[in-house]
Nucleic acid binder design. Structure first.
Ligand code: SF4
Ligand code: SF4
Lengths: 143, 143
DNA sequence: TAGATAAAAGACTATTTTATCTTAAATTAT
DNA sequence: ATAATTTAAGATAAAATAGTCTTTTATCTA
């Protein structure tokens, strides 16, 4: 459902929203090490997020990346949109193209509802809520 | 979520369960033409379904394929399992490996419920129900 | 200003998925 | 039996995704 790049992107944003990192510039290499991701590969994903307005970055000594907005203003859905694009919303279960409600496939009625739920889940999951959940419940971020 | 092969497989099974084809041997080439799929590619998917016990086949002149069981005994979930394997159930949203309920990721609570709903949808969608729905509502099967 | 540092950029490699093309094997009809 | 037909099998190709390696550019610090 989500690409590997997208998963890494979400993990990165959650990592940056934890109290230890929040408000600091963090090196991509240190994020990559903490999350067990290839540094150069993550570098590309991070840059995509910078271009998409989710992260900010600065180069050079003491450089790094940080979240571009308040935690409560970044939805998981934003991250998904930036990295995986709109295909999650356009493409569909049975791979039909140009689906419409007049002539749907046999799964439309149920899948349509599930999709709405999933979207809601990704919209409601703002980084502040996730970070709090991770702290309160001692949840894990890495693989 | 589902691979292209899996989508083709589901479409094929639905096609074979429509009144026009039901109970007949149908050539893969004719299925492929009707659904707009590459014949040789579909041939492999069909063979996977034969090996998985969803379809039966016979070679030679007047050969073809047909559904191995009663429509009511074939769940969409069976088709998915045979073609895409168990990854839909093992792998997960955030790509964690070896997820458990004790230390889940921040999405587990909601995603776990969605996944249960999706499974139920694929289990309840037996071919007889789908075929009836397609007939009653004049739904489409192809792209 | 010079050197160190870290993100950005580009070229390249590997793997998986999707798809095509060709040949082989089995079955039927003549 | 033989030829036609159709699935099975294997080799190959194309595309998308995932990941590596090297070079460039920007920024800070000394
Ligand atoms: S009909 Fe609905 S469920 Fe089916 S492929 Fe189209 S949008 Fe998806
Ligand atoms: S914790 Fe739950 S939702 Fe998250 S990756 Fe694991 S199984 Fe999936």
């Amino acid at each position: 459902m989500l690409s590997q790049s997208c998963i890494y992107g979400i993990q990165t944003c959650i990592y940056l929203s934890l109290p230890q990192q929040l408000g600091k510039k963090v090196r991509v290499s240190s994020i990559a090490e903490s999350l067990g991701i290839s540094p150069t590969f993550l570098s590309k994903i991070v840059f995509t997020l910078v271009q998409g307005g989710v992260l900010c970055s600065t180069r050079g000594a003491n450089g790094g990346v940080w979240l571009a907005k308040e935690l409560s203003e970044i939805q998981t859905l934003d991250i998904i949109k930036v990295i995986d694009g709109p295909k999650l919303f356009k493409d569909c279960l049975l791979g039909f193209s140009g689906c419409n409600d007049k002539k749907p496939c046999p799964f439309h009625q149920q899948w349509g509802q599930e999709r709405i739920r999933l979207m809601a889940m990704f919209q409601e999951s703002t980084l502040d809520k996730i970070a709090q959940k991770v702290n309160d419940l001692d949840l894990r971020i890495q693989m």
